[in-house]
Amino acid sequence: MSEQVSFGYEEVSPEEKTERVGAVFSSVAKKYDVMNDAMSVGMHRLWKDKFVRRVKPRPGEQILDMAGGTGDIAFRLAAQGAQVTVSDINQDMLDVGIERAMERGLDGLVWSRQNAEELSFPSRFFDAYTIAFGIRNVTRIDHALAEAHRVLKHGGRFYCLEFSTTEWPGFKEVYDLYSHKLVPKIGEAIAGDADSYRYLIESIRRFPTMPEFEQMIRAAGFTRTKVEPILGGLVAIHSGWKI
């Protein structure tokens, strides 16, 4: 039987998932940041601020921001003096990020279309690797983690911000109802696309638990791994070191 991977609640071939995820992000690119504000009531901005504080970017560091499309994380990293390469598999997302950077007068960022599973960068090149709300959309997560480890220098650090499953009683049920029933309707109203946002919610449900994902990070070769839950695990910051 051929390999199958999850696309939301469906099981599809790896090739089909890559193609369909690409279509999702091409569809939502123009309204991606507006939708983030609407879906999280603006909290995604606080989560991203906290995430970058954990990364502790330093002037002159080379940082790869993977799945960084619209530039939200990259702008924050660059503000601390880091040299940031923004990579995404989806050119439509990168185009939005480039336009936003131009509007802000930021010309020091490098923009590079890349597949997280097969990076073209040399080994041991970056001081840090960040990925925010992108790893769950990768077709083969283990391949992406292995590539993250490869391109980091010894002593380099890996940081991932991703949705998970909240462990707060009561809140979990409320959030499940909100995400499954209301988010697709918000997507239809703001972005004219309910199906893409239905997939994005389903992809959260299919993502490994916090302990399972931490084990995957360790399996890729990272040490001193850590998980920092936010809102009981609704969102989590995962980290590890290449030592």
Rank of each mutant, 00 (worst) to 15 (best):
S120N: 02
R58L: 15
V227G: 09
V151S: 06
T166N: 10
R54M: 08
A189H: 10
G134R: 09
V151T: 12
E162R: 04
L161Q: 04
A236D: 00
S203H: 10
G97E: 00
L94Y: 05
V28M: 02
G233E: 11
R157F: 02
I73P: 03
A148I: 05
W111I: 06
E11N: 09
V138K: 10
F222R: 07
Q83N: 15
D176I: 11
P59N: 04
G192S: 11
K185L: 13
G69N: 09
N137K: 05
M39P: 10
F7G: 09
R113C: 07
H180G: 14
F121G: 07
S112K: 14
M216H: 11
A116Q: 03
E11M: 14
G192C: 00
A191Q: 05
M102P: 01
M216D: 13
D195A: 14
A236S: 13
A132Y: 00
E117F: 03
G81M: 02
F207S: 01
Y9K: 14
S6H: 14
G60R: 00
T139Q: 07
V52C: 02
G155R: 09
P208E: 07
Y178C: 03
D176N: 15
A78K: 10
V52R: 10
P211Y: 08
R104Q: 07
R206Q: 12
R218C: 12
G233N: 10
S179W: 01
T165C: 13
G233L: 08
Y175V: 12
P59I: 06
G22D: 01
S239F: 03
V84H: 06
A191V: 07
S2P: 14
L182C: 11
M1V: 13
G97W: 00
K172S: 13
S164Q: 10
E19Q: 15
D92V: 12
D49R: 15
R53L: 14
E99V: 01
Y129K: 03
Q114A: 08
L152Y: 08
S6M: 12
K185W: 11
E10N: 13
E188D: 13
G81I: 10
I237P: 05
R54C: 04
Q114T: 10
F133K: 08
E19D: 03
Y199K: 11
S123Q: 15
Y32F: 11
G155L: 01
E61Y: 06
D195L: 00
E173F: 04
R206W: 01
I201P: 06
M35D: 06
I131A: 08
G68N: 00
E99T: 09
A116E: 07
R76D: 08
I131K: 11
T18Q: 15
V41S: 14
A236V: 10
L77T: 05
R58C: 09
